[in-house]
Nucleic acid binder design. Sequence first.
DNA 1: TCAATTTTGTAGTAAAATTACAACTTTACT
DNA 2: AGTAAAGTTGTAATTTTACTACAAAATTGA
Lengths: 281, 281
Amino acid sequence: MNILEKITRSKDLFSKSEKKVAEAILENPQAAIHSSIATLADLSNVSEPTVNRFCRRLDTKGFPDFKLHLAQSLAQGTPYVNRNVDEHDGPEEYTKKIFESTMAALDVAKQSVDINTINRVVDLLTQANKISFFGLGSSASVAHDALNKFFRFNVPVVYFQDIVMQRMSTMSSTDGDVIVLISHTGRTKSLVEIAQLARANDATVVGITAADSPLGRECNFVLSLDVPEDTDMYMPMASRIAQLTLIDILATGFTLRRGNKFRENLKRVKESLRDSRFSQN
Amino acid sequence: MNILEKITRSKDLFSKSEKKVAEAILENPQAAIHSSIATLADLSNVSEPTVNRFCRRLDTKGFPDFKLHLAQSLAQGTPYVNRNVDEHDGPEEYTKKIFESTMAALDVAKQSVDINTINRVVDLLTQANKISFFGLGSSASVAHDALNKFFRFNVPVVYFQDIVMQRMSTMSSTDGDVIVLISHTGRTKSLVEIAQLARANDATVVGITAADSPLGRECNFVLSLDVPEDTDMYMPMASRIAQLTLIDILATGFTLRRGNKFRENLKRVKESLRDSRFSQN
DNA sequence: TCAATTTTGTAGTAAAATTACAACTTTACT
DNA sequence: AGTAAAGTTGTAATTTTACTACAAAATTGA
């Protein structure tokens, strides 16, 4: 729906000159909607028909129709778009880009996430005897964060970074245990093995991973997040933020399901931290 | 600003024929934005110049400009705001709220962050002999994530969860070492002690924490994130996402500063993971 | 009723967008 | 390397759309 998003996403669909047009528009979308096709063509250093072809490639009827879509996108809550960091960016640019890309990723994730599965997974977690969170590499810190959250809920919760420990823990799992496996690609071999092992022991496996992946196929439930990633940086950034937000959602669902008295308990956990802290002033 | 509202409001400002135009637009605004001036004139049973005059009376430059405003009014979605989760929220509501609150938090963080400090910290990190990331509780996973990122850069990087290890590591730090301390509140006693210890050893201390806090005051550089938090949940959620995004920004700044050859290296690190993975299909 | 003012439409003009086509690039194959 | 095919881009002509000037109605007030 959001045409700005669409422009960045379908970048490899454009020809060289069309990319110039895309750049010019992303550079200053506000200016673009107030330009005629001639001015925009000039701004992008291409000819008018190229701008027109650019519009058509985005499935709009032509330039005026495109402007309408663009105007709507800009009016929408966030004009945030995934824009890859460029070699020549200064601190101001890359800071802005990363914040905005992250927000755009969350927006996409929000749209792609399956509420129904979330609800069932929350159900599952509230009824679990033991919950394990496993991830490797950059997903390890996500699992770590999940540990932090669920630990407060006074339920048996397990987290290991070590694949041997992960395997040992999984081997002793049984019916009623829930194992949450986190992997962006879903192609980490040892996690796939963990999933198989867990299911052989009748534990329930929840994957926070790509649905159509070796890991995804081994899970009882898959929470997939369809997030665009800046592959130029060779680091998972946005995907991991989306995963963490999903953890927040599961944790929140958990506390809500457990009801009021339970939240009193959370408050006590928080207050117990007081001794390790300096007072407010 | 909203032009639809403006039309209804200033109805007595219009002439008889102009009212007809207003009627036709309010009747079906979606149709209006996809009409030419001729079609809309036809639809309203007036002449084309009347439509044009109608547009001008609403302080727009002309018909195309008016359509732009109209399109924006129609698109006005909900802007992202921090909305606290409510006890009675179902999965759909709390999922939506958490995504949107997180995005709102990032938006606030983006505005509040100090680019200048970021730039100086990036400078510092690129020149450091050793980089340490310490955090406790929910900030531990942020430090953990930072380890993951900076580890790829082939620089000596340290991360401990254990406060004794943190202290021991800090005690052996020297001039040229950078210690990054992460804490939302900035009131965690043992981290404040680490900061003091580090500075006594001539190491540089960077705080990702509140500027006006015991920890903040002990740091050489403070990267503060002014983020709204849903205190009803008794869990840091948005603040931690903002911290992670900041880590992403520092890591990105680092790679950019190191230049092109360095990014080749990152690519190799990523490719080295291949053996632990299933192939694309 | 009639002059002044406002409103509205017709016709012409200007501007903008689109189409057709030709020149130029790139790609793939020999 | 050479060449045909496919794809890309720009120029120029055409069509569509929006706007302006002006004149014909309609409305208002004495």
